[in-house]
């Protein structure tokens, strides 16, 4: 009789220890994943900033070519100041999407100015813009991948139990967005 009691007690203790160990390791893994997602988000923000920082250069270059497109230049200035004042992720994403819109319209306008298109400085700026957009789409994809892994883990049994009691919230995904600048420097035919 005594032996059985001791046996049951021993098993109980072992289970308790195992559960506590599992709890800690799951919690820590969620924390790590949460941090990874934040890190990937920071990369996205870096690229938003980088893109906005290219705009003054672009405007300066364009102004050198007596181009009378006041409206679009004002739109650039507005989009850039919107990016500067944006504090939350949503506001930043919104500002960047506005900038994408202005850039697309700008690409159309530029077609009317062959001398500008031939300008070396301008071509380099276009390369930089296209490069930044490419980096942005990579950063977004990395963020989405990290967010997906995290979201799966906080919803799966039994980790969802730990996520719930510690208030881990699911992360939002990016919607695929079309790039404004086409990479000019790829084809050599």
């Amino acid at each position: 009789m005594k032996k059985i009691v001791a046996g049951v007690g021993g098993v109980f203790i072992i289970i308790c220890v195992a559960v506590v160990a599992w709890f800690f390791s799951s919690y820590n893994s969620l924390i790590t994943q949460n941090e990874t997602v934040s890190n990937k988000w920071a990369q996205v923000e870096n690229n938003y900033q980088r893109r906005a920082d290219l705009i003054p250069n672009l405007v300066n270059t364009v102004e050198g070519y007596s181009i009378h497109e006041e409206k679009i230049m004002q739109d650039f200035a507005a989009a850039q100041s919107q990016m500067l004042s944006a504090k939350t992720p949503t506001a930043k994403a919104q500002a960047d999407s506005n900038l994408t819109g202005v850039l697309s319209r700008f690409m159309v306008v530029v077609q009317r100015y062959p001398e500008l298109k031939a300008d070396k400085q301008f071509t380099r700026l276009m390369d930089e813009l296209a490069g930044t957009e490419n980096r942005l789409s990579i950063a977004r994809k990395d963020y989405d991948d990290a967010a997906q892994q995290y979201n799966i883990d906080i919803k799966r049994i039994p980790t969802n139990f730990i996520a719930n009691i510690n208030g881990f919230q699911p992360k939002e995904y990016f919607k695929a967005e079309a790039a404004a600048a086409k990479a000019p420097t790829v084809n050599f035919n």
Partner: peptide
Amino acid sequence: KKARIEVGYGLEGSLNDGKVGEILREKMF
């Protein structure tokens, strides 16, 4: 008939996209 130069983070200072594009267009293509 496509080519691309991919640059790691650590070299973006000396090789930004503008510079890389110029190398592709003027030296390689």
